[in-house]
Lab assay of single mutants.
Amino acid sequence: MVQRGSKVRILRPESYWFQDVGTVASVDQSGIKYPVIVRFEKVNYSGINTNNFAEDELVEVEA
């Protein structure tokens, strides 16, 4: 279970941040499909630095 402030590695192959490390900004408990919002240092092609992920697409590298 990841929690706010954890450092996580992204396992979603189609993601711009695949294999990159980001910080968990928040975790939604309402039961949505992609409840974990992760914030990154670098921006993607659209200038965005956050994205939603499912918990099984993340691996915690640092608490």
Rank of each mutant, 00 (worst) to 15 (best):
G31D: 12
N52L: 04
P35V: 11
D28N: 08
K33T: 08
G31V: 08
Q29L: 14
V2P: 10
N44T: 07
A54V: 02
F53K: 04
E14A: 10
V2C: 12
R4Y: 06
G22T: 03
V21Q: 02
I32W: 07
R4Q: 13
S15C: 09
I48T: 10
K7Q: 08
F40P: 02
V36R: 00
I48E: 15
T50M: 12
P13M: 12
Q19W: 11
V61K: 03
V36W: 09
G47S: 04
R4P: 15
Q3C: 12
D28S: 09
G5Y: 02
N51G: 15
D20G: 05
E14N: 12
Q3P: 04
S46M: 15
S26D: 14
E62T: 12
V21M: 04
I37G: 04
I32F: 05
Y34A: 04
K42R: 14
V21C: 09
D20F: 10
A63T: 13
A25H: 11
N51M: 15
L58V: 11
W17T: 00
E62M: 11
F53D: 02
Q3T: 11
A25Q: 15
I48H: 14
Q29S: 11
N49H: 07
N52K: 07
A63P: 13
V43G: 08
G22V: 04
T50I: 11
P35M: 10
L11P: 05
R39D: 02
G22R: 00
V61Y: 05
T50G: 03
G47I: 03
Q29W: 11
Y45L: 15
E14S: 14
K7I: 11
I32Y: 06
R39I: 14
D56Q: 06
P35S: 10
W17R: 00
N51Y: 12
G22A: 01
S15D: 06
G31S: 08
E62P: 13
D28L: 13
P35F: 11
V21K: 03
R39Q: 12
Y16V: 04
T23C: 12
Q19E: 08
N44K: 05
R4E: 13
S46I: 11
Q29K: 13
R39K: 13
V59R: 08
N49V: 05
E62R: 10
E14M: 08
S46T: 09
I10E: 03
V61N: 05
V36S: 00
T50Y: 14
E55A: 12
I10V: 13
V59P: 00
V21G: 02
V36C: 04
E57N: 00
E14Q: 10
G22C: 07
T23D: 03
G5Q: 02
A25D: 14
F40E: 00
S30R: 09
R12K: 08
S15Q: 03
V21D: 03
L11H: 04
D56F: 12
R4S: 10
M1N: 12
D56A: 08
R4G: 06
M1A: 13
Y16F: 15
L58C: 07
K33W: 05
N49K: 05
Q29E: 11
V24K: 01
K7F: 09
D28I: 09
F18I: 02
L11R: 04
Y34R: 09
F40C: 04
F53G: 00
V24D: 01
S15I: 04
F18T: 00
G31C: 14
M1D: 07
R12F: 05
G5A: 01
N44A: 05
G5P: 03
Q3W: 04
E62I: 10
D28Y: 05
V24H: 01
I32E: 09
S26R: 11
P13G: 05
A63C: 13
V27E: 02
F40H: 01
V43P: 15
V38P: 01
A63D: 13
V43S: 14
N52W: 10
Y34I: 02
E57W: 05
V21F: 06
N49L: 05
S15V: 03
M1H: 14
S15K: 01
K33H: 06
P35W: 11
V24R: 00
S46G: 09
Q19L: 14
L58S: 00
K7W: 08
S26I: 07
L11G: 02
R4K: 14
Y45G: 14
G22F: 05
V61W: 06
E14T: 14
A63N: 12
L58K: 00
Y34M: 07
I32H: 10
D28Q: 08
I37N: 12
N52V: 06
F18W: 05
L58P: 02
A54H: 07
L11I: 10
E60D: 05
Q3R: 14
A25G: 03
V61E: 06
T23A: 02
I32M: 10
G47R: 01
F18E: 00
S30A: 08
P35R: 11
Q19I: 06
V24N: 02
Q19T: 05
G5I: 02
P35C: 13
K42I: 07
N49A: 07
S26Y: 15
Y34K: 07
V38N: 00
V27D: 01
I10A: 00
D56I: 08
R39E: 12
D20W: 08
I32A: 12
K42P: 01
V8T: 00
G47Q: 04
F18H: 05
V8E: 02
S26Q: 09
A63R: 12
G22S: 01
E57A: 03
K42M: 07
S46E: 15
G31H: 10
R39H: 09
V21T: 07
Y34F: 12
Y16I: 03
K42H: 09
V36I: 14
V38L: 01
V27Y: 10
Y45H: 15
P35T: 09
D20E: 13
W17P: 01
Q19Y: 08
L58Q: 01
V59Y: 08
F53C: 03
Y16E: 06
Y16A: 02
E60N: 09
Y45I: 12
S30G: 10
G22H: 02
E14D: 14
V43M: 12
E60G: 07
V2E: 01
G22Q: 04
P35H: 08
V43F: 15
G47H: 03
E62F: 13
S46V: 11
D28R: 05
G5D: 04
V59N: 07
E14R: 08
E55V: 14
K33L: 11
R9D: 05
V27K: 04
Q29R: 14
I10N: 02
G5M: 00
P35N: 13
N44P: 05
K33S: 08
F53E: 00
P35E: 07
S30Q: 06
V61A: 06
Q29F: 11
F40N: 00
G22L: 08
S46Q: 15
N52E: 08
F40G: 00
S6G: 04
V38I: 03
V38C: 05
I10H: 03
E41T: 10
I48K: 12
